[in-house]
Design a protein around this nucleic acid. Structure first.
Length: 491
RNA sequence: GGCGCUAUCGUCUAGGGGUUAGGACGUGAGAUUCUCAAUCUUAAAACACGGGUUCGAUUCCCGUUAGCGCUACCA
């Protein structure tokens, strides 16, 4: 095992979300654990944006991450928006640093250039899988001669830089929650460190940044355990001291799989818009995985972020993955809502479901459709209600079976998930799906209307969906599918 | 398939070599309330399995099983 950081070094931790979409509830969870750790030890909490995957980059994502984490009360000491002594805190602005470090590994022999094409790698992988072998990089470019490399470079062949994992031996590291974990080098792949577009992969960037940013404790999700030996090897190649590693259990869906948007609302935007209070969400997150002594608050399961700072014990974190139980979160939220002073409760309503920004576009939508102002609620109920589950008689099109209808609704969900949330993109995504599956525009939109509004009659559907918001609309679709799946056919 | 991690009520968890294995959510029943919600009372509900170690294992060790994760020029 390698040396660890000087244990007297001031504690510095980080979260490193990727701006690839809506801010994720898992980011908030890991953020909370890091935040508590830093505050308990008078340490620093760093926010770093890991935007090295240019293909999945979503420009609006970063701001949403900032807003959501602040909403929850997780303030960071250093980050892209607040600055700090170890910036820049956006990885896309640090590419020179990664390149220099990759070059250093090239020079020291800990890494090598690889000129294999994506097609070849894919073919290799398929062959290995077919032969029941573990898919690994076959080492084609591992021992290229200087001449061969020069030739490729001269020819301008696109290249990546891979790490040279020792063929023999093993790497052991300590996980603060589980003890020593060992990986045989046979099972550690020659990971790509620098991609052909010049951006680093997570593995290089996170090691380089954690070292340069003086991170003492890497507190991250359990899914990283199997790549930790690569990181340890990298630290060793650079001759750097190791941080402590804490791998948190993964949040789970009801079926125990890793939490996913397909089976659960995971967007923090959703929780905000649906009317969860930040103190309820953060309290609930603190309940998952243990860490709070049961008797620290007189046995209550309700506690504030500050109470967590004083009582939370990282050593007591349970390593089994907790199911993210929406039912319990809702109960907790109700508790907080009821405990609110009535004025605060009213402002909470006014800043969410009755916010001007929300109501104004709704007004525009119904102005031409009413004769009395008091009819407002008649037309907009579905935008103010939480649950609008249509009966089969409403959602089922003539000449369609229940099975094909539910299957199509699931397709609609998939199509909408990847759609940009604007009228035109939503419409074209839906129409394209309709054409593919031979559903008429009318059937298509009517079904969706029934699911989203609970009725066959409503203001313009897509505009309504835009106002209602992506995360809530998709959630409605998901809940519809889920309950219909469980319900036996009525007919 | 390979490697790794994990295992207490349906769910979140407490506990720990000898306990009636505790609490919370949810569920059932009852009380209260004009209704509903809230509230109160109450009930059902768990140590995955097999070997050890031990006077005694749910607790410690090993194995099995199951679940999960990783196995990308994604993070």
């Amino acid at each position: 095992m390698s040396e660890t950081l000087d244990s007297s070094a001031p504690v510095r931790v980080r979260i490193a979300p990727s701006p690839t979409g809506d801010p994720h509830v898992g980011t908030a969870y890991i953020g909370l654990i890091n935040y508590l750790y830093a505050r308990q030890r008078n340490g620093q909490f760093v926010l770093r944006i890991e935007d090295t995957d240019r293909t999945r980059f979503v420009p609006t994502s970063e701001q949403m991450i900032f807003d959501s984490l602040r909403w929850l009360g997780l303030a960071w000491n250093e980050g892209p928006d607040v600055g700090g002594p170890y910036g820049p805190y956006r990885q896309s602005e640090r590419t020179e640093i990664y390149r220099a470090h990759a070059d250093q590994l090239l020079a020291s022999g800990h890494a090598y250039r690889c000129f294999c094409t994506a097609e070849k790698l894919e073919a290799d992988r398929r062959q290995q899988i077919a032969a029941k072998l573990p898919p690994r990089y076959p080492g084609t470019c591992r021992s290229l001669t200087p001449d061969e490399i020069a030739a490729h470079l001269a020819a301008g062949t696109p290249a990546v830089i891979r790490m040279r994992v020792p063929l023999e031996g093993s790497t052991t590291f300590r996980d603060e929650l589980r003890g020593a974990i060992t990986f045989d080098h046979h099972n550690v792949d020659d990971q790509v460190l620098l991609k052909s577009d010049g951006y680093p992969t997570y593995h290089l960037a996170n090691v380089v940044d954690d070292h340069l940013m003086r991170i003492t404790d890497v507190i991250r999700a359990e899914e990283w355990i199997s790549s930790t030996p690569k990181h340890v090897l990298l630290y060793q190649s650079f001759g750097w001291a190791l941080p402590r590693f804490w791998h948190m259990p993964l949040l789970r869906n009801q079926d125990k799989s890793k939490i996913s948007k397909r089976k659960n609302p995971v967007s923090l935007i959703y929780y905000r818009q649906a009317g969860y209070l930040p103190q309820a969400v953060i309290n609930f997150l603190g309940l998952l995985g243990g860490g709070m002594p049961a008797d620290s608050n007189g046995g209550t399961e309700k506690f504030t972020l500050d109470e967590m700072v004083t009582h939370f014990r990282h050593e007591n974190i349970r390593t089994g993955g907790p199911v993210f139980d929406l039912t319990k979160l809702k109960w907790l939220n109700g508790e907080y809502l009821r405990a609110l002073p009535s004025d605060d409760f009213y402002s909470a309503l006014r800043s969410t479901v009755l916010a001007d920004d929300y109501l104004r576009p709704i007004a525009a939508l119904i102005q031409t459709r009413i004769e009395l102002l008091s009819q407002f609620g008649d037309l907009t109920g579905f935008l103010l209600n939480d649950n609008t589950h249509p009966p089969e008689s409403v959602y089922l099109p003539k000449n369609r079976t229940r099975e094909e209808t539910l299957a199509f609704a699931a397709d609609q969900l998939t199509a909408l998930e990847s759609a940009d949330w604007q009228q035109e993109s939503i419409e074209s995504a839906l129409k394209q799906l309709g054409t593919e599956k031979q559903w008429s525009v009318k059937e298509n939109f009517m079904l969706l209307r029934a699911i989203v509004t609970g009725s066959t009659m409503s203001p313009p559907l897509v505009e309504s969906m835009v106002i209602f918001g992506k995360s809530r609309t998709l959630d409605r679709l998901r809940r519809f599918l889920e309950t219909e799946k469980k319900r036996p056919p009525v007919k």
